[in-house]
Amino acid sequence: MEKPSLAIVPLTCCGACMQSIYEDRELMKTITRYRIIYWPGYAEGELGDAVDAAIIVGVARTRRDYEAAEKMYREAGLVVMYGTCSVYGGIPGLTALVPREELGEDYADTAKPPAVLRQPSVLAPGCPPSASVRKRLAEILEAYLRGEKPDKTVFLGNTESLCRNCPLRPRDPGRIEMPGIKRVYEGVSMDKCFLEQGILCLGPVTSASCNHDCIRMGLPCTGCAGPVPGIDDAGLRYIGAIGSILMVKRERQVMFPGLARELDKIHDPMGLLYKYTLPRAKLTQLALIRRGLAGGGEK
């Protein structure tokens, strides 16, 4: 029997996800058992019609991106969304609200992660996906060689929040108190939860698909692995969380003006909350509908 064909399709992306595939020996071993018909930088060729499996990397921003993603959904039996950009939007997804007129004719109206265009077979979030996600992806690709295909969408990320196994986990995660809002350059201590130090860390709403690499290096989580599955809009939920923990001991002393002064230290809430998920934010959807463009990601 002829080997099944595989296309690795980069849409608008930075290339680090490709690098993570090249560097993973196990994954490369599985991938090279396929007949690679399209992979810029690896295999010569055009994106043809007959494709058995497709790995899509990056967000759909240009019209060609949308066409390529639609084509893969139409042709391939197994469609893998590799990386945060293809699942949630990622950094290139931050252009979701930039009007087409400012970008050029080649661009579509908005950026959308290809995962929301139709039903993908596999979601592998991560920026880039971590070793455990890549290992499970290799298993799925291996099984597909034998003709086994997942019957519904498989989520390869972790379904728990980053705080669950955080190395800086506080003794009582139910009683976190944020003394105020601080930036990282003002100094961090490596033996205390970032939120308890007053540093905005997106751990509570972020999926634990990474190995806490940033936290171990003294940097708060920015949410690159995407939100925990099951919450509808991680950014808005995180605002809810800040409301519950910010200055809880001093609310009555500082009153509303004091709280407002503290919250004004968050200069860019959009950039903080939606660094990797902007195309899928509810407010993006609202803003796009107001511009006369229906739907900005799913509801």
Binding site: L236, I239, I242, G243, V248, F256, P269, A287
Partner: peptide
């Protein structure tokens, strides 16, 4: 005890966020 402070913090941030989205 402190419910209205929590509501204030949430809505204050939400308003800042809405302004950034053009709402």
């Amino acid at each position: 005890k402190t419910g209205n402070f929590k509501a204030f913090k949430r809505m204050y941030l939400l308003k800042k966020l809405m302004a950034q989205f053009g709402v």
